[in-house]
Design a protein around this nucleic acid. Sequence first.
DNA 1: AAGAAGACCAACCGCGAGCAG
DNA 2: GCTGCTCGCGGTTGGTCTTCT
Length: 314
Amino acid sequence: MVRSPCCCHDAGVKKGPWTEEEDRALVEHIQRHGGHVGSWRNLPKAAGLNRCGKSCRLRWTNYLRPDIKRGNFTDDEERLIIALHAELGNKWSTIATHLDGRTDNEIKNYWNTHIRKKLLRMGVDPVTHQRLPPEDILLNGATPAGGLPEAILSAAASLGGLNSVLVQAQALQLLLQAINGGAAAGLMANNFSPAGSSIVVPSFQDQMNLLAHHASYRPADDYLNSTASFAEHDVVQRLNASAPAPAAPAAPPVALVPAASFPQEVAAAAPADDRTVQGFSNLLSEPMEMPSMCSLEDDPFWKDMLESSRLPPL
DNA sequence: AAGAAGACCAACCGCGAGCAG
DNA sequence: GCTGCTCGCGGTTGGTCTTCT
């Protein structure tokens, strides 16, 4: 089929930001017609606008429509968007029909600038809504020349921003798995262990104990108030089953970055025994000044999302 | 204080679907 | 069934604002 040339390609048709006069002309024209547009293609001429019909439609639907809600998205809206996106994917217009006064463009922008990043920080793939493999959480985008420590520190510091112990446990588990089996092994070996020694990755129970002694650990939900129910929880059981043996030898250290590039205060704070665990303990007990992971960090929705995400095969 | 970098978001572009003739 | 037209959608761009160095 031969595509008809879009009016936007006409010479002399104005593009770019709309002026108040143009907005007024468009609104008045549509109001004169009782809110009915008819043909968008013919509208610019009828309204006295030197604009493409497509541009007019976009301006009206995304900005000038009287039922558009402006301002920040509420937590409820955010939750709804995530839930709908998990169900529908990038069907922004369909998602928009479930949120009063929000446009597909606004939702799309909000997703790309806020929610997507938030999910990535939490280790959730924004496309599949499944949990990312550890290497993607920690190593994605890290550069050999110093990017790795930053990625690890960021991930570790993020743990301090999560109040849910379950999320902390999962994130720490991922962190330790990645360090034990991934490229970060060399880094950690260089900084926390005598040369040539293996890295000790604690059992899941040890990790729970570590978290239990974490200064900012605060019983905040059912999982914390009932150790039994916490241990029985499916996700915990799966994590226990997948946790590496306590003294499993690590891969031979591979130095990716100079030892000096890791914060000295962290290395210095680690006692001789159990250096790796204590190193992380110190990272956790002295949370860095980080922006809150999200405004919903106490919200069960986020916890549920991580719980329901699939564990990567080990 | 000034420039750089990053974040945000309105607007644009190209494609496909649907419809009328 | 084919063709041409229009609309709507989703991805992307680029200008503006904010934050950082």
